[in-house]
Simulated assay, not measured.
Amino acid sequence: MAARDYGQYGGVTRALELIGERWALLIVRDLLVGPRRYGELAAGLARIPSNILAARLKELQAAGVIRRAPRSRIVVYELTPYGRGLEPVVLALGAWGYKALGDPREEQVITPDSMTIDLRTAFRPQVAASLPPTSYATRFGFAELLIRVDGSALDVSRGDGPADLAFSASHDIRRLISGELAPDRAIATGVVEVLHGRGELLERFASTFHLPA
C-alpha cells in the first residue's frame, strides 16, 4: 500500500504515491550513481533520520523500485529495471531545479553523488562526440571525482587518477556550466583553480557540460 493515497486515478498520481514521500527521490538519485550499502546511503543523505531511511527503503522495495542484493559478504541496495526508468525523470527534474539553484546556504554541502547526477544532467553527448577523449580530476567542495569523456560516453567515478586537467572549484562552478562565466574568467577570478594540466582544457569542459540557468 502506498504511504500516501491522493484519491485520484492517473499516472502522475500513482508516481507520487510511490516516490513522492520526503527523501524517496534523493535515495533514487544516489542509487542511479550505483548500488549502495545502508550506511553509504545514510552518509550521503546526512540529515535523513535512520527510521525514515529504513521506512523509505522498505516502501521503495515494496513498490518494485529498488531491491536488496547480496554482494560477497554484504548487502547493497540497487535499482530494479523499473526503478532505473526514473533516470530521465531525475535528470529532467535536476535541469528544471538548476534554473532556481542560486547560492547554497551555509549548511548545504555538495556530495559526490549529487554532483555526479548534476554532471550527467549537464552533459552534452552531441558536443562531446566531436571532441578528443578527455579526463578531468575535479574537486567540488568535499566531492572528489574523476570524469572521463570519450566521444558521447561519460563515466564519473569517485576519487583521483590520471587526468588531462585537474581543477578544484566551489559551488560557483554552476556559473561556468550555465555560461554566465567564461572559462578564462573562471580561472582569473578564482572560481576555478587549475591544479595541473592545460588550463585551456577548461573551455572544453565548459562546452561538454552546459546547462543554461
Rank of each mutant, 00 (worst) to 15 (best):
E144Q: 08
T134D: 06
L93Q: 10
A100P: 00
L45H: 05
F142P: 14
A54S: 11
R73G: 10
E59I: 04
T138D: 02
S130L: 14
R71G: 06
E106H: 05
L146V: 00
A42Q: 12
R71W: 02
K99Y: 01
R73P: 00
N51Q: 11
P88W: 03
T138E: 03
G102R: 05
A46W: 09
G44E: 10
G102D: 08
A54G: 08
A122W: 10
A43Y: 07
S72F: 08
L91P: 02
A55M: 11
R105D: 14
E107Q: 12
S135D: 10
E107W: 06
Y82T: 14
G44P: 00
T134P: 03
E78N: 07
S130N: 04
G64T: 13
R68Q: 15
G64W: 03
A137M: 11
G97Y: 05
V76I: 09
F140V: 13
A129K: 11
P81C: 14
L91V: 15
V127S: 03
R120H: 13
A95F: 00
P112E: 11
P104E: 08
D118W: 01
Y136E: 06
T121M: 12
D103A: 15
E59V: 12
A143G: 09
P88I: 06
L86P: 02
P88K: 04
F123W: 06
R68D: 04
R68F: 03
Y98C: 09
T80Y: 05
V76S: 07
A63L: 02
V127Y: 00
L41H: 07
P81F: 02
I74K: 09
L119A: 03
I147H: 01
A122F: 09
P49F: 01
E106D: 13
I66F: 01
A42H: 08
P104I: 10
I117D: 08
V89P: 05
V65R: 00
T121Q: 05
R124N: 12
V127F: 03
I147C: 04
A92C: 03
S114D: 14
L101Q: 10
E78W: 01
Q108S: 05
V65T: 13
S130W: 01
F123L: 09
A143Q: 01
G97P: 01
G85C: 01
I66Y: 02
A143N: 06
Q61V: 15
S135P: 07
L79Y: 07
F123Q: 10
S50G: 04
E87I: 12
A122L: 07
L145S: 11
R71Q: 10
R105Q: 13
V75M: 09
A137I: 08
R71K: 11
R105S: 13
G102V: 13
R71I: 14
A95V: 09
R139I: 07
L131G: 01
P81K: 10
P104W: 07
Y82M: 11
A46I: 13
E107V: 14
Y136D: 03
V65P: 00
R67F: 12
I52P: 00
N51E: 15
Y77Q: 08
S130Q: 12
Q126C: 05
Q61I: 15
